[in-house]
C-alpha cells in the first residue's frame, strides 16, 4: 500500500509502521503457537506411525496412513454423513432464516420480543441443545413422540436417535433449531440496510411481492447472504458436539471430526488419526475455495478497496 497524504504526515506514518510491528508481534506469536505449529505437527504425524500411548516418536511411513484412510469405508461413511449434514442443514437454515428475517423486517408489535427470543437457541451451548433434543426425541418418554401419538400421526413410538436411518436427520433437526436464528439475524441485518425508496419504485412498476423479492431483495443482499452461508457451511463441516452427544461414535451419524477424534484419542492411533484430521482439513479447504469461487465472494474484499 502506498503512503498517502502530505509529507508532514509521512513521518508519523513511518513511526506508526515501526510501532505496528511491535503491536502485532504478541498476537502473531500466539497464533503461530496455537495454530501454526500444531497444524504443522499434525501434518508431520500423519506421515508417521506414532501412537498416543507410546512415548517413542513414530517412524516415518510416507503416505501409508493416507492410503489406509482412502480404503476405509468408515472414513467415506463419515465424509458422506458430514457432507449430507452440511448441505441439508445449511440449505434449510438459509431458507427458514430468510423467511423469519423477512417476517421480522415487517413493522409490527412484538417484533423486539421475537428478535430477543431468536437469540436464545443461539446462546444455548451446543451440548445442552443436543441433550435437550435428545430428551425431547426420547423413544419412550419423549414429548415429540407423545405429541405425534396424540395427534394420531404415528402408531408406535419412533426411536429418532437410535434408528440408523433417522439419526442423521435428528442431528440435522437439532442443528436447524440451534442455528437458524443466527442466519435470520444476519439476513435481517442485511435487509435493514436496504433503502426503502427502491421498493416504492418497484410498486409503481407493478412488481408483486414475489417479484420484488427475487428481482430486488435477493440480488441486493446476496453478498451478505453468501458470507453468512460460507460461515455456516464451514462450521457445519467441522461438526462434532452434536453427533458426539446425540449418538456417541455411532457410524450412522459419525462426522469426519468424530471419526478423526475416535482414531486419535480412543484408538490412540496418532499417525492415522492425524491423517484423518488432515483429510478433513483438505475437504474444508476445497469447499471453501468452491464456495468462494462459485459465490463470487471476495472475503476481505473491503480491505483492498480502501
Amino acid at each position: 500500500m502506498v503512503t498517502r497524504g502530505p509529507v508532514g504526515l509521512s513521518a508519523v506514518a513511518q513511526d506508526r509502521r515501526r510501532a505496528a510491528f511491535w503491536f502485532l508481534l504478541p498476537m502473531v506469536v500466539a497464533v503461530l503457537l496455537v495454530a501454526g505449529w500444531p497444524l504443522f505437527r499434525t501434518a508431520w504425524f500423519s506421515l508417521t506411525d506414532a501412537r498416543l500411548d507410546e512415548a517413542a516418536p513414530g517412524a516415518f511411513v510416507g503416505v501409508e496412513n493416507y492410503a489406509l484412510l482412502l480404503r476405509d469405508p468408515e472414513w467415506w461413511n463419515a465424509v458422506r454423513n458430514t457432507l449430507v449434514f452440511a448441505i441439508v442443514s445449511v440449505t434449510i437454515e438459509t431458507v427458514l432464516g430468510m423467511i423469519i428475517a423477512l417476517a421480522l423486517n415487517e413493522k409490527m408489535r412484538g417484533r423486539g420480543a421475537l428478535r430477543a427470543a431468536m437469540l436464545i437457541p443461539w446462546a444455548i451451548p451446543t451440548v445442552v441443545s443436543a441433550q435437550m433434543w435428545g430428551w425431547m426425541l426420547h423413544d419412550q418418554a419423549g414429548v415429540v413422540n407423545a405429541a405425534l401419538l396424540g395427534l394420531g400421526l404415528i402408531d408406535q413410538p419412533i426411536a429418532w436417535t437410535a434408528d440408523p436411518d433417522l439419526a442423521l436427520w435428528a442431528v440435522v433437526a437439532v442443528d436447524v433449531w440451534k442455528t437458524t436464528p443466527f442466519m435470520a439475524l444476519l439476513i435481517l441485518a442485511a435487509l435493514q440496510l436496504l433503502p426503502g425508496e427502491i421498493y416504492e419504485a418497484a410498486e409503481i412498476d407493478g412488481l408483486g411481492p414475489v417479484g420484488r423479492f427475487f428481482r430486488i431483495t435477493l440480488p441486493l443482499i446476496r453478498p451478505a447472504l453468501m458470507v453468512a452461508i460460507i460461515f455456516r457451511a464451514l462450521d457445519a463441516l467441522r461438526v462434532f458436539d452434536l453427533m458426539y452427544v446425540l449418538s456417541g461414535n455411532s457410524a450412522a451419524t459419525a462426522s469426519m471430526s468424530v471419526y478423526a477424534r475416535q482414531q486419535l484419542v480412543e484408538f490412540q492411533d496418532l499417525g492415522f488419526g492425524s491423517a484423518a484430521a488432515m483429510g478433513l482439513f483438505a475437504i474444508v479447504a476445497i469447499c471453501t475455495v468452491l464456495l468462494v469461487t462459485l459465490g463470487r465472494v471476495r472475503l476481505g474484499g473491503a480491505e483492498d478497496a480502501r
Binding site: 503457537l33 505449529w37 497444524l39 504425524f45 464451514l234 478423526a260 482439513f281
Partner: peptide, 23 residues
C-alpha cells in the same frame, strides 16, 4: 495477515488436535 487470521478462525479444530495434544 488479515486473510490468514480469517482462515485460522474458520479451520477445523480437529486439524490441530494431535499437534496441540503433543504441545
Amino acid at each position: 495477515l488479515l486473510a490468514t487470521i480469517l482462515a485460522v478462525s474458520m479451520f477445523p479444530q480437529v486439524a490441530v488436535l494431535s499437534g496441540l495434544f503433543e504441545l
